[in-house]
């Protein structure tokens, strides 16, 4: 393997991993607070990709404006999902909310088929992001491949700042410890939960946009597999932990890209690696890399 190829794989793995990480933050925040696997999160990610496609290609807005609109629209969708499908079930057994989440995921996917049609649509990549930079030793880099992890790390840093340095962040961490007590202390719990959904959806939108640029196309079921894999990344990093989600995502990205790079005949099994990884981690360290333990009490 030449240095050039290795660097390509490395950058590829890093940017795929950052995308998984960005998506998995939404899972980890919601799970940390509500103990709910938001199955619809992968489909929110898909909506982000579609919105930017429509804004820039169909309505011909410029890229920056298109991206802002897409993030805003996706965030609104995430908030609506929480309001309509999850909030009525806050007091219900957790499994009900989970089934509702499955329903929502199903709904968004098929609604997208109805509205956007099931055909994959090509996305035009801005030239500036695709022009290779040549480094010494003939190493070629695509700017997009660098942009993705950079954006991801900036966003995660911002999120951590919000979570640990601001009041809503404090409230959010408090809720994840004990929702009832936090409510008693005068925090509008529903608002904070909505904030978590909003932030998660916005990050998913960013991931969706970058994903659409990377594999230049969008289709209604594109959120399914990355969604489940991102959840796996969240479990892997330790559910409830944001740095954990990012680390889990990047590890997953490396496992997927590198195993196929070094063992090309396994490429057919690529999608199985994540699940295999999940089962292994669940069996040996169910709390993930950075997670904390929950005990059953009598």
């Amino acid at each position: 393997m030449t240095l050039n190829i290795f660097v390509q794989h490395f950058v590829n793995a890093l940017s795929l991993g950052s995308l998984y990480g960005l998506i998995s933050i939404g899972y980890t925040m919601v799970y940390g607070i509500l103990r709910l696997i938001n199955f619809a999160h992968g489909d929110i990610f898909m909506l982000g990709a579609y919105f930017v496609f429509f804004a820039t290609i169909v309505y011909k807005l410029n890229w920056i404006l298109g991206v802002i609109i897409a993030i805003a629209a996706t965030t609104i969708c995430g908030l609506l999902v929480d309001r309509i499908a999850y909030r009525p079930l806050r007091q219900a057994p957790r499994i009900s909310a989970l089934i509702s989440a499955i329903g929502v995921s199903f709904f968004i996917e098929n609604f997208a088929v109805v509205v956007f049609t099931g055909m994959p649509r090509p996305v035009v990549q801005p030239k500036i992001l695709m022009k290779p930079i040549i480094l010494p030793n003939k190493v070629r880099l695509i700017p997009l491949g660098i942009l993705v992890p950079v954006v991801a790390f900036i966003l995660v840093a911002a999120l951590l700042w919000l979570l640990y340095k601001t009041k809503p962040g404090l409230a959010m961490r408090a809720i994840s410890f004990d929702i009832e007590t936090t409510r008693m202390l005068g925090v509008d719990v529903n608002k904070i939960i909505a904030l978590a959904f909003g932030l998660g959806s916005a990050l998913a939108a960013v991931a969706g946009i970058l994903w659409a640029l990377r594999y230049p196309r969008v289709e209604p079921f594109m959120g399914m597999t990355p969604g489940i894999k991102a959840f796996i990344a969240a479990v892997f990093g330790g559910i409830g932990s944001i740095p954990g989600a990012m680390i889990g995502g990047i590890i997953l990205g490396f496992v997927e890209i590198m195993s196929v790079a070094f063992f090309p005949n396994l490429s057919g099994y690529k999608d199985a690696f994540a699940f295999f990884l999940l089962i292994v981690i669940l069996l040996f360290k169910p709390t993930g890399i950075l997670g904390s333990k929950i005990e059953d009490k009598i």
Partner: peptide, 28 residues
């Protein structure tokens, strides 16, 4: 035998994972 040590949602995700693995193996 390995997966039932897990409870609740984790079990759901792990079984979903196994179903996908079965499907991928059949495909390959």
């Amino acid at each position: 035998i390995p997966v039932l040590r897990l409870g609740g949602d984790y079990l759901g995700i792990a079984t979903l994972g196994f179903a996908e693995i079965i499907r991928i193996i059949i495909t390959n």
